[in-house]
Design a protein around this nucleic acid. Structure first.
Lengths: 220, 220
DNA sequence: GAATTAATACCGACCGTATTGTACTTATCA
DNA sequence: TGATAAGTACAATACGGTCGGTATTAATTC
């Protein structure tokens, strides 16, 4: 139940503003790297509001991961590549889409939960679990398409739809790491190209995969 | 020039002990997540020694990344998979080896510089550059084998040896992220399997790749 | 439908501790 | 003896978190 604030009643409640500030700040400076004061200042909120909304800084971390899971799953659910009818085309268009949205500053397109996991996996199990739910929950949605594509082609392989779905996330997460190291988004796109070539290969032995799938335009 | 210490004269000098403590602690808790006191305690060294050896905590971060680059390059240079005569077999055996050494606790086999990069790429360019030098320096060594394998087979492709070498590192780094999220090393091994399948595929169109390469045993 | 009560959302000064880094002293070796 | 290495005490501040208080709204009462 959002409630306006004196200072900026139009921007929504303090909780949402803090979650958005956390999303942006943590991606740039890491979880331990930004203080509660930093977050409050970025959100235009006082410390009192922070600890009214969240029991602790760790509590905010969990909420930020959950908020990330919600917003990104809505984002991908509404993305144009979903319009592809064929499951395999949808998977390939998903990969294209992941490449397309790598644009702008690193902190704008990299993954909040991937960054947080690396940092707190050993020190904060609750944050780690929330991050894992986001990553593997997203993988599950792609897994459904992969499984459908496999079944449609009657494939029998020594790999599973689940493992391939996770592999897609592996490459995407790793691409972010190398892009950060090189300070260059092209490094990330490069690996997505290799990933797509691999998926095309996996399905090319059963039936030819045409380049008909679309990611940016509605496929009707 | 190692110098013994009162408390533990057998363990070498304070600088090395601090670098080893940093390697282990930062992999578990992140760079910002462990304090100078933590590092000193883990190394069995006082704070005076710390700031005698390093100008700042950031200075230790840079040194730790450089130390990581040195020790890992020596580790891979001495690894048994290098004995493979054929460059392609050496690449495939490298991938096998990367899978083999995923064992024990997460903090023992994950990558220090990958973890640090994610955290400080925006806040500490000096640490980021040191991490990048480690990652891409290592990739260069694999790139040499990939390039040799391509040349031996007279391949003409729409990908380069450099990009494939970086892709290997992408998958490895991403595998660590997902393994941390799931708290399960198997998740990492799974993606390495996909990676190997991909590399085998890339080279299978020119000449058959037998499973003769070895990673654990000396090949000669 | 005005007055009162209760509950929520928020503010901001303050607290105790943890943090990085400094200054000075002590030990060790060439 | 002079230089390097390491130990000790402490200074300055940054940090997460607390606490009493205020503002706004919804529910309740008369």
């Amino acid at each position: 139940m959002p409630r306006p604030t004196k200072q900026s009643p139009e921007r929504g409640d303090a909780r949402t503003r803090l979650l958005e500030a956390a999303r942006d700040l943590i991606r740039a400076k890491g979880f331990a790297g930004c203080s509660v004061d930093d977050l409050c200042q970025a959100a235009g909120v006082t410390k009192g509001a922070f600890f009214h909304q969240f029991a602790s800084k760790e509590g905010l971390g969990v909420a930020a991961a959950e908020y990330w899971a919600e917003t990104t799953s809505a984002f991908f659910a509404a993305a144009p590549y979903q319009a592809n009818k064929d499951p395999l085309h949808r998977v390939l268009a998903y990969i294209d889409f992941r490449k397309e949205i790598i644009a702008g500053d690193l902190a704008e397109f990299t993954c909040l939960v991937g960054t947080m996991t690396q940092e707190v996996y050993a020190t904060s199990p609750t944050i780690r679990d929330a991050c894992a739910a986001s990553i593997f929950g997203h993988a599950k949605t792609v897994e459904a398409d992969i499984a459908a594509a496999m079944e449609a082609r009657g494939m029998e392989r020594d790999w599973t739809a689940a493992s391939l779905a996770r592999h897609l996330q592996t490459v995407i997460q790793g691409a972010f790491v190398l892009a950060k190291a090189a300070n260059d988004p092209d490094i990330a796109r490069e690996s997505i190209d290799h990933l797509k070539r691999y998926v095309v290969f996996l399905f090319s032995n059963t039936a030819p995969v045409e380049e008909q799938h679309t990611s940016a335009e509605r496929g009707q």
